[in-house]
Simulated scan of single mutants.
Amino acid sequence: MSDIPEADRSGEAPHPRETTQLFGQSAAEAEFLDAWNTGRLHHGWLLTGANGVGKATLAWRIARFLLTDPPAQADTLDAPPGHAALPRIRALSEPSLMLIRRPWDEKAKKLKTQITVDEVRRLGSFFGLSAGGRRVVIVDPADELNPSAANAILKLLEEPPAKATLLLISHRPARLLPTIRSRCRVLRLAPLEPDALEAAVVQAGGHPAAANPLAEGSVGAALELADGGADTYEALVNLLSKPQMDRARARAMADACAGKAGAARLDATVTAIARLLHRAARTGLLGPPPDAPDAEVRTLTRLAPHDAAARVWARLAQDIGDRVAHARAVNVDPAAIVWDALARIDAQARQI
């Protein structure tokens, strides 16, 4: 089992359950502690914010806190050192904890693209066998629940077992069922300030210089940019810098994502596309980011010269994100996924 990748681990960084310190999210921690100390602990919590700002790390801190006999009045989420449950939590063998994430497909020898309903159904036996004590469920991320799995989680939120706490991690909460959102208390995690970002990057095994402003306060984004993502984004910015996209270069960028050898390139390219559309939408409303290099400023300004363009790029970002997710779920050729996204961006840019 040690050779099977973990769907909720980001690259080579330590898994969030192995990360003991959370940087820059004291407000979210204080909000949860207030609910605990006042006896208003909700059964469902939705942890939201950009990818890589510490949502999973906070979820695991909460899990350790709840499962290590916390005092009725607590001033920190730190678990007591040496508690017997801590090594079990770290090893995913604690009987009062269940982690729901994308499972391994033994037949295809890869992680499934969604969290299946079979994974959620395991909670039936989990709650049956662990009846009587406090139980914690982490869903990471809830965005990857397929429709049947989402409905199963909803039923659990509607009829929660006693002393159960569900921690749902979500990068894009707007895509969740409204009924799931309405039955959870929301903990919003903000982008990290520069000092917190640098400390978190170092804790994750990165170099302090990896705290790139382009990461916009996200540890995951900073590590991804340092691992070649910055070069991919720069290539995308250059590709879209002219009034008419160079189709030959665009085709080469798409073809580089094909096959198993291009899997990492596909992830980096899809991330770069999402980043560009996000920054273009924000440029149309607020102007280009103050720390953006001149080449990026020129491209963003061309793409989003006014607020109407901002709305266009925001809609297209969501549309392309949905199309990419669906295409990956049904094993569409990776080159076709990237080419479709680039062609749609180019077509839209010509209309602005």
Rank of each mutant, 00 (worst) to 15 (best):
P147K: 05
P147E: 14
S148F: 12
A150H: 03
A152Q: 10
A152H: 05
I153A: 02
E158R: 03
E159V: 10
P161W: 09
P161I: 11
K163A: 15
K163M: 10
L166R: 13
L166G: 10
L166F: 15
L166Q: 09
L168Y: 08
S170L: 06
S170T: 09
R172E: 14
R172C: 07
R175D: 15
L176V: 11
L177T: 12
R181Y: 13
S182R: 13
R183F: 08
R185G: 08
V186G: 05
V186M: 13
L187S: 12
L187F: 11
R188W: 03
L189V: 10
E193L: 14
P194L: 04
D195G: 09
A196D: 15
L197N: 10
L197I: 00
E198F: 00
A199I: 02
V202F: 04
V202A: 09
Q203I: 04
G205A: 12
G206A: 09
A209I: 03
A209P: 03
A210H: 11
A210P: 03
A210N: 04
P213Y: 10
P213A: 13
L214C: 05
L214A: 15
L214H: 06
A215W: 01
S218W: 04
G220M: 04
A221D: 12
A222P: 00
L225K: 06
G228M: 01
G228E: 02
A230H: 07
A230T: 06
A235W: 01
V237K: 04
V237F: 03
S241L: 01
S241N: 06
K242M: 11
K242V: 04
M245G: 05
R247I: 09
A248C: 01
A248S: 14
R249N: 13
R249K: 14
A250Y: 00
A250D: 07
R251Q: 13
M253A: 14
M253T: 00
M253Y: 02
D255F: 01
D255H: 01
A256L: 04
K260N: 14
K260P: 12
A263R: 15
A263F: 02
A263K: 15
A263W: 02
A264I: 08
D267I: 00
T269Q: 13
V270G: 04
T271S: 15
I273R: 01
L276Q: 10
R282T: 03
T283V: 04
G284Y: 05
G284K: 10
L286P: 03
P289Q: 11
P289W: 00
P290R: 13
